[in-house]
Simulated scan of single mutants.
Amino acid sequence: MNRIVCIGSVLWDIIGRTENAMSLGADRPGRITRIPGGVAMNIAQTLARLGVTPVLLTALGRDHPGDELIEAARALGMVTDHIHRSDLPTDTYMAIESGGDLTAAIADAHSLEAIGDAILGPILDGALGRPDAPFDGVIALDGNLTHALLAEIAAHPAFASADLRVAPASPGKIDRLMPFLNCDHATLYINLEEANALSGTADVTAPEAAVTLSRLTRARVLVTDGPRAAAMVGPDGVLTAIPPAVTALRVTGAGDTFMAAHIVAERAGKAPAAALPAALETAARYVSGTD
């Protein structure tokens, strides 16, 4: 089945963008948009653009913003039948991007965190899998889930046969990925700052960080570093690729786009040496606003 389960945050992104660099307290003209977002939704949107049907497992409120997100997800071709609805408000993310960089952001994912393992019901109760017949496809996981819930997923038999692809929500939540360091069926997609936070080192390049983490984890790790070389360690050593040079018009969701594109490239049978640059090219098109 050409489906991938995306577990995590689906919310509204409110993003202000200006071409000019901003310092603390600055006030600049620009554009403000409200679009479907959240790590799981960002991944799902790229999957859908690349011809894969995403299945969303998330928590949304029984409110108008939640209804709007359901409608938007269905319009994009996503499966929304298993989304958990509650009386808690639908979550929101707010960011300011200036000069092609992220200036500041606040993620309000409190409802997702409060719901806890209720969003996992379809993987546990037979709708998508169960412990004695576990789901054996790709699952994209979002670091906005709580540390306790991610630890449960890493160890739960219902996820033991899945190809787990894990994205941190932010450097500040990187510790939530710790349960997957001993998970040999997981792949972690992180940037250089997150890699150093996870390893407790101060590597200056993605290849160095990938090598460091390869010595600390059983999981596969891909490390990106903005416009500089990305890297992963495989059976044949360190694989690197440099993203295409583009003018950055947006940055929110770039890492999620890279992760989704890499998943699709591998599922299409591309070798590691081809999958990594293919994913970087997709992410570059996203950042430049051409995709």
Score class of each variant (00 low, 15 high):
T46N: 13
I43Q: 07
G77I: 07
R165A: 08
D236W: 13
G116S: 14
D132L: 09
A186M: 09
R3D: 00
L239K: 12
H185R: 15
I139C: 04
V138G: 00
T53D: 00
N196M: 08
D203G: 06
L60R: 11
P168G: 05
A104V: 15
I32F: 15
D91E: 04
A40R: 03
P168I: 06
R31C: 01
A275N: 06
G66N: 09
N182Q: 14
N42F: 07
V10F: 10
S86A: 06
A140I: 04
W12F: 11
T217R: 06
A109Y: 09
N182H: 14
E281N: 11
M22H: 06
R165E: 11
A26S: 15
L177R: 07
T58N: 06
G77K: 12
T252Q: 08
V204I: 12
D63V: 09
R220V: 04
G253L: 03
L120T: 07
F159M: 10
L177N: 02
D184R: 15
A151Y: 08
A151Q: 10
S170Y: 08
L120K: 07
G289Y: 14
S214K: 11
A283N: 05
I115A: 09
A186C: 06
D87E: 13
I83L: 10
V138T: 15
T290E: 15
T257V: 14
G121R: 15
G226C: 06
Q45F: 05
L124A: 02
T33Q: 11
V55C: 04
E208P: 00
V79S: 04
T33E: 10
I70R: 13
S9W: 04
R218N: 08
A160V: 03
A133I: 03
L188V: 10
Y286P: 00
N144M: 09
T46Y: 01
R250K: 14
A118S: 12
A73F: 07
L11V: 12
V264E: 03
F180Q: 01
A278R: 07
G51F: 15
V211N: 06
A75C: 02
D63F: 11
N42Y: 12
I190N: 01
L181T: 12
I190M: 07
A230L: 05
I43D: 00
D67G: 03
V52S: 05
R176S: 04
A265Q: 05
G200D: 11
T205K: 06
L181A: 10
G121Q: 14
G143L: 04
A59F: 06
Y189V: 03
S199H: 09
P131E: 00
A169D: 01
V10R: 03
V287A: 13
G30T: 12
T224A: 05
G289I: 13
T46H: 09
V238W: 12
H156F: 06
L145K: 11
S111C: 07
V287D: 01
E97T: 03
G200L: 11
G77R: 10
S199I: 09
R215I: 00
A154T: 08
G38A: 04
V251A: 09
A275F: 07
I139H: 04
E266S: 11
R220D: 13
V79Q: 12
R62L: 07
G269N: 11
M259L: 14
